[in-house]
């Protein structure tokens, strides 16, 4: 029973943290919506955890111990999300490289103009 309470507390805290971050404009729109979805799903799941519905869902996937389901889905989500972050980070570093290059080229152009 204690496990269920812990799961419920964690998911509610996650939802709270997400809403706070959105209010403080710390997340871009897409990621805000993603985390809102994730934290709402977590609250929903933790409410579902003690029910027989979750148990039969687990059995449907051939999982004997229901909490394992949470771990499996959690890992799957985290793997996908870190991959997405890697792609996003690579894109940002490429753009940053182009900005630094363009800045140097513009600077050189200005230097040439201001030279006597």
């Amino acid at each position: 029973m204690k496990g269920y309470v812990l799961a419920a507390v964690i998911s509610v805290v996650l939802l709270f943290v997400t809403i706070r971050a959105i209010r403080k404009k710390q997340l871009t729109e897409m990621l805000a919506i993603l985390w809102l979805g994730v934290s709402l799903a977590a609250v929903f799941l933790s409410a579902l955890l003690p029910s027989s519905a979750f148990l039969s869902l687990s059995h449907l996937f051939g999982v004997a111990y229901p909490p394992t389901m949470v771990l499996v889905f959690g890992l799957f989500f985290l793997t996908l999300f870190t991959f997405y972050l890697s792609v996003a980070m690579s894109r940002l570093s490429t753009r940053q490289k182009q900005l630094v290059q363009d800045l140097a080229l513009v600077q050189a152009m200005l230097d040439a103009q201001s030279a006597p």
């Binding site: 940053q96 490289k97 630094v100 290059q101 140097a104 050189a108």
Partner: peptide
């Protein structure tokens, strides 16, 4: 003529700046 990169980009990014120029 000096092309000054405001951040270190590594050899590839630096050389490419020269080619863009």
């Amino acid at each position: 003529l000096v092309l000054s990169l405001s951040q270190n980009l590594g050899i590839g990014g630096a050389v490419q700046t020269g080619y863009k120029f």
